[in-house]
């Protein structure tokens, strides 16, 4: 087991290198550079060149990459050209915000999507199933930003139930933090709940046809036990993969929602960094996101082993 984890982590290293090279190259393909973005209206070619020399932007691209990579290996992700703040420090302040949002959305998604999937699989072909499918499709097709704006309008502006936007760290005021985060988490969660529901449903439908489910019924077990203990546990595998992938996506993909609710998260930071050609910040964020993805996938694999005894001892 331990060797399996170690092997997976070793395989992750070339992945990370490849991603870094790729993103570095892509950034250089973009027109403009951070110095241009910094200089604004007053563009004295002499000054621009001096600034480029200062940040090493006149060096060949591979020298730039290697000097960045050297820093990373020493635990230094570089400094934002725009703000002068170390990238690691920026990430350290923004990441918890996004992680909190991602985790809360996932809780919504799981508690809505999985039960809905089970119910519509068990009651396949009934009105309940169709209703759940309609709701799920709506969840998938309604854009997050629109749902966010509507919720702000109704819940915050009209009824003053929850704060409309902003962010409060849970360490500062736990309940206020929950209150500000619950709407964006719900908005993000509904979209995920829809795909979770569809996956749970199809996986449950496959498993419910299996012989051992019939065996469980023949034993005289109550139907809820047949469904939860015998069918659902076997149907979980693809659902767990999906949860891991969705969570990885949430780390980088909550841009629109963060924008609507003005949450100072990771997504917003990436967009700002790309626009200002803040190379070090983009590189750092991509690296952290990639690591997040790899960790989530590894966790999903470990969850398989816990869920499936046939994989144990390998």
């Amino acid at each position: 087991m331990l060797s399996h984890i170690l092997r997976r982590l070793l395989v992750a290293i070339p992945t990370l290198i490849l991603i870094s090279v790729f993103i570095f190259g892509l950034q250089k393909l973009l027109p403009g550079d951070p110095v241009l973005a910094l200089a604004g209206e007053d563009r004295d070619p002499e000054t621009l060149n001096r600034l480029r020399d200062l940040y090493g932007l006149n060096d060949p691209i591979w020298v730039q990459f290697l000097s960045w990579a050297k820093g990373v290996l020493q635990g230094d992700l570089g400094t934002s050209i725009r703000s002068g703040i170390p990238v690691s420090q920026m990430i350290a302040t923004k990441l918890p915000v996004t992680l909190q949002l991602a985790a809360m959305s996932m809780v919504f998604a799981i508690f809505i999507g999985i039960p809905a999937g089970i119910i519509s699989a068990v009651r396949k072909g009934t009105k309940l199933d169709y209703a759940a499918n309609v709701v799920a499709l709506s969840g998938l097709s309604i854009p997050n930003f629109w749902l966010g704006i509507m919720l702000i309008l109704i819940v915050s502006v009209k009824f003053h139930l929850l704060p409309a936007s902003g962010y409060v760290p849970p360490t500062e005021d736990f309940w206020l933090s929950m209150k500000t985060m619950i709407m964006p988490a719900f908005v993000l969660g509904t979209g995920l709940a829809a795909s979770l529901m569809r996956h749970t449903r199809s996986s449950m439908l496959t498993v419910m046809r299996q012989d051992y489910v019939r065996t469980a019924r023949a034993k005289g077990l109550r139907e809820p036990i047949v469904i939860l203990r015998h069918a659902f546990r076997n149907a979980l595998t693809p659902v767990v993969t999906l949860i891991a992938l969705l969570f990885g996506e949430l780390i980088a993909g909550a841009v629109l929602t963060e924008q609507v609710f003005t949450i100072p998260g990771f997504g917003k930071m990436i967009v700002d960094a790309v626009f200002s050609r803040d190379y070090a910040v983009v590189q750092g964020v991509v690296l952290v996101t990639a690591i997040g993805f790899i960790i989530m996938n590894l966790l999903a694999d470990l969850a398989y082993v816990l869920l499936n005894p046939r994989l144990r001892g390998r």
Binding site: D211, Y212, R214, T215, A216, A218, K219, G220, R233, P309
Partner: peptide, 20 residues
């Protein structure tokens, strides 16, 4: 209660036991 008195042996010994 009927399941107590009336039991079933299935054809396929591979698929009729829950693998988990």
């Amino acid at each position: 209660a009927l399941r107590k008195d009336l039991q079933f042996i299935f054809q396929d010994p591979f698929s009729s036991l829950n693998p988990r």
